[in-house]
Design a protein around this nucleic acid. Structure first.
Lengths: 156, 156
DNA sequence: GCTTGATCTAAACCTCACTTGAGCTTTCAT
DNA sequence: ATGAAAGCTCAAGTGAGGTTTAGATCAAGC
């Protein structure tokens, strides 16, 4: 019925568009797991194509690899995840997308107001206030809006 | 009318919520320019508050500092930028926000379809294909979807 | 059996966007 | 005039997310 359900790292790379080195890196981070041949070469399940795809999609939505690992941990460990498992885990992404769209729309509005008055100078127009920062984290490079964002401006 | 139109780096930091070290870093990168006192201390124009605010907003939208520098270069050099100048440059961000929202909505749709079928396995559902990648760049950490995204999978 | 291409490990290196530290100077209020 | 607070430079460090390199080994087809 099926010759080989196991695929080599190169094939997984080709199927997902991810570099071989990246897949090894993901394995080191615990995002994917590999079986080994007698000669210590990695062999992946076909289901791992889906797993890597999920990583890519989640990354685009701004999740860090650590966060993605957290999501993936919710898949069943004892058996190969099925369609329903993926549907469940993917719907978490849906929520995140919705939140991001809402945040962007809010920014768009505020920026529209700012263009009107030309201000762009905080407080005055509400753009880039602390509340917005909190609402939008997840949309950009993570380390740019880390936990430190509360301290700095209040110090005076 | 105005005592001092020049502000110290600490004040610029306090007004924008950015760390002093970050402002020095931005200066080194050419994103802001400073005058100097006799004792070599930096003094900024009040208008630089707006400039730094722009940097922060643009960053949230996923622009790299280099790209932001490019945008800022379009401000008039010979005089302090006025409201109209900022309105012009900010509307570039509006376009970017609109594009990001569109990309996210597209992802949302595709992911919705994927949740329906549970596939998540590329090609099949169109999610995370090369075209989408191109459409969505700008939304996440830049280096994750740089110019190299065409080569890798083709090397076979 | 041999060759060729894929894979292996480990460690070093890369970019981006900053931060930190050391050691010294300037500014400003009293 | 002085002392604290803020500022200065330059070099090195950080963390995320990988890539590159070197040298050795494995798997498959002829």
């Amino acid at each position: 019925m099926h010759r080989t359900d196991l695929i080599a790292i190169g094939e997984l790379a080709a199927r997902t568009g991810v570099a071989v080195s990246a897949i090894r890196f993901y394995e080191a981070k615990g995002l994917v797991a590999a079986l080994r041949t007698g000669g210590r070469q990695r062999r992946f399940l076909r289901a791992d194509i889906r797993r890597v795809s999920f990583i890519l999609i989640a990354q685009q939505l701004g999740l860090s690899l650590e966060e993605i690992a957290g999501e993936l941990a919710r898949l069943p460990a004892e058996r190969t995840p099925n369609a329903a498992d993926w549907a469940r885990i993917s719907s978490g992404l849906q929520a995140r997308i919705a939140a991001q769209i809402a945040a962007l729309e809010r920014t768009q509005e505020l920026l529209g107001a700012c263009i009107g008055c030309g201000c762009l100078s905080l407080k005055k127009c509400g753009l880039y206030n602390r509340e917005d920062k909190a609402a939008q984290r997840g949309a950009g490079p993570r380390y740019l809006m880390g936990d430190r964002s509360g301290e700095i401006a209040e110090r005076r």
